[in-house]
Amino acid sequence: MIRVAIVGSGGIAGACHIPALRGESRRARIVAAVDVDEDRAKAFAAEHDIPAAYTSLTDMLDKERPDLVHICTPPFTHTAQVVECLEAGAWVWCEKPLCLSLAEFDAIAAAEGAAGPYSSVVFQHRFGSGAHHLRSLMAEGVLGRPLVALCETTWYRPPAYYEVPWRGTWASEGGGPTMGHGIHQMDMMLSILGEWEEIRAMAGRLDRDVETEDVSMAMVRFSSGAMASVVNSVLSPREQSYLRFDFAQATVELRHLYGYANADWSSTSQAWNPPQDVPSSHAAQLGELLDAFERGERPPVSGVEARRTMELVTGLYASALTGAPVLRAELTPGSPFYHRLNGGLSL
């Protein structure tokens, strides 16, 4: 059995991680829960029949020796926790964002072993059957080459949402809807269109009393020559997550909110017919992560794959805050945006 620990007992842990792990009970067992609040840790463990509760990640790693740790804590805590787990020999599956800068990402990568342990990010939208089918059709050449894409995350978060102290700041959340909300759709877009080269962006703080943006927009050019328009918002009362891919021979669209099934996809291609209906979910991604663990291979959305998404977010902020186009190749340790997503600048 793969021994699993959960760090952080907030809503995402109970709503998404626990059900996903229960669905893998034949090969994964939850052995411990960790939360800095002792009462909350014990209550979470009791509610979900977890045998041990801790307030210290260090103590849990020392006593339980888990194979895999799920990190479900606020963003500013991720890097230190992920590195500690990796150095203790545990694989990590971390809620987005994995970290708050490319510098932190590279520190995490340095803590991985050549043959594991590995860290992976929760980007569940890559793993539904619709996304798998789209990538299969592309590989077969059925759709032709990609040309144009739209990637829109138009969500709504009221002012009260930002009363949580770590939200809406560069230091603790890392960014606004670009980093915390639209990153899911942008990662999905990258899983389809691949390497990107250039980004031109704008970001604004239009209505929320926060340090970061509440809206961002960007144009992205990919290595293939394809171009994409990206919108991220927390000011949109009619919420929607929308992806559109125009290929030379067909259009493929996805409309959903926080997760999709096959019915949420449409296409002009007669070849569009996913062979199964697997919703995008933590469960879908966890299954592939555990498969990789059993094979001793790097899991999906890890390493170079995960860094590419972080690079796109970094490039968007760099362009928006400087007012200049940004090349992916420019995001090196010599760039201030490599170290902080806002590069020390203010909107």
Rank of each mutant, 00 (worst) to 15 (best):
I2L: 15
R3N: 15
R3P: 10
S9T: 15
A13P: 03
A13F: 01
A13K: 06
H17V: 04
P19W: 06
A20S: 11
L21G: 07
L21F: 06
R27A: 06
I30F: 03
A33I: 01
V36F: 02
A41K: 04
K42P: 04
E47Q: 14
D49K: 12
D49S: 14
I50V: 15
T55G: 08
M60H: 06
M60K: 12
K63A: 15
R65N: 08
P75R: 10
E87T: 13
A90F: 01
E95P: 00
K96H: 05
A109P: 09
A114P: 11
P117S: 04
S119Y: 05
S120E: 04
S120G: 05
R135A: 13
V142W: 08
L143M: 13
Y156I: 08
P158T: 12
Y162M: 10
P165E: 11
W166I: 13
G168A: 05
G175D: 02
G176Y: 00
T178M: 11
T178V: 09
M179Q: 07
M179N: 02
G180I: 00
I183H: 04
S191L: 04
E197C: 03
A201T: 07
A203M: 10
R205N: 15
R208S: 11
A218W: 00
F222E: 11
A228R: 04
S229V: 07
S233N: 12
V234T: 11
L235P: 07
L243S: 08
F245D: 13
A250L: 08
L254S: 05
R255M: 08
L257C: 06
Y258V: 13
A263M: 01
D264Y: 00
N273A: 15
Q276M: 12
Q276P: 01
S280N: 05
A292K: 04
P300A: 13
G303M: 04
G303E: 02
E305W: 04
R307A: 10
M310F: 02
T314H: 01
T322P: 03
T322R: 11
P325N: 11
R328K: 11
P336E: 11
Y338N: 07
